[in-house]
Amino acid sequence: MLDTILKRIVSSPVLIYAIRCFIGFLIGYQLYVYFPELELFWTLLSIILVISPEEKDTRRLSLERFKSNFIGSAVALGLLLFVEPTIYTIMFGILLTIVVCRLFKVLNMARVALVALLIIMVEPHDTSWVEAPFFRFGTVALGCIIGLLIVVLTSMIFRPLKKKYGIPY
Rank of each mutant, 00 (worst) to 15 (best):
M1Y: 09
L2I: 15
I5A: 12
I5E: 10
L6K: 14
R8M: 04
I9C: 00
I9Y: 08
V10H: 05
S11Y: 06
P13G: 06
V14Q: 10
Y17L: 08
Y17W: 12
F22E: 01
G24R: 02
Y29E: 10
Y32F: 15
V33G: 01
E37A: 14
E39Y: 13
W42Q: 12
W42R: 02
W42S: 05
T43L: 12
L44H: 08
L45D: 01
L45A: 15
I47N: 09
I48P: 03
I48W: 13
I48Q: 13
V50C: 02
I51E: 04
I51Q: 03
E55M: 10
K56G: 09
D57F: 13
D57S: 13
D57Y: 14
D57Q: 14
R59E: 14
L61I: 13
S62K: 07
E64A: 10
E64V: 00
R65N: 15
R65Y: 08
S68F: 04
N69T: 10
G72R: 00
S73L: 04
S73A: 15
V75C: 07
V75N: 01
L77I: 10
L79G: 06
L80H: 03
L80P: 02
F82S: 11
F82K: 09
P85Y: 05
I87G: 10
I87S: 12
Y88G: 04
M91H: 00
F92C: 08
L96W: 04
T97K: 06
C101H: 07
R102C: 06
L103G: 10
L103S: 05
K105G: 04
K105P: 01
V106L: 00
L107W: 04
M109S: 15
A110R: 10
A110G: 00
A110K: 13
V112C: 11
V112N: 14
V112W: 00
L114V: 09
V115E: 01
V115T: 11
L117M: 06
L118Y: 00
I120C: 01
V122C: 11
V122G: 02
H125S: 15
D126I: 09
S128A: 11
W129G: 00
V130D: 06
P133N: 04
P133A: 07
F134R: 01
F137R: 01
F137V: 03
V140S: 00
A141H: 01
A141K: 02
I145L: 14
L148F: 12
I150D: 01
T154A: 09
M156H: 11
I157M: 10
R159T: 14
K163A: 11
K164V: 02
G166T: 04
I167Y: 05
P168K: 05
Y169T: 07
Y169Q: 04
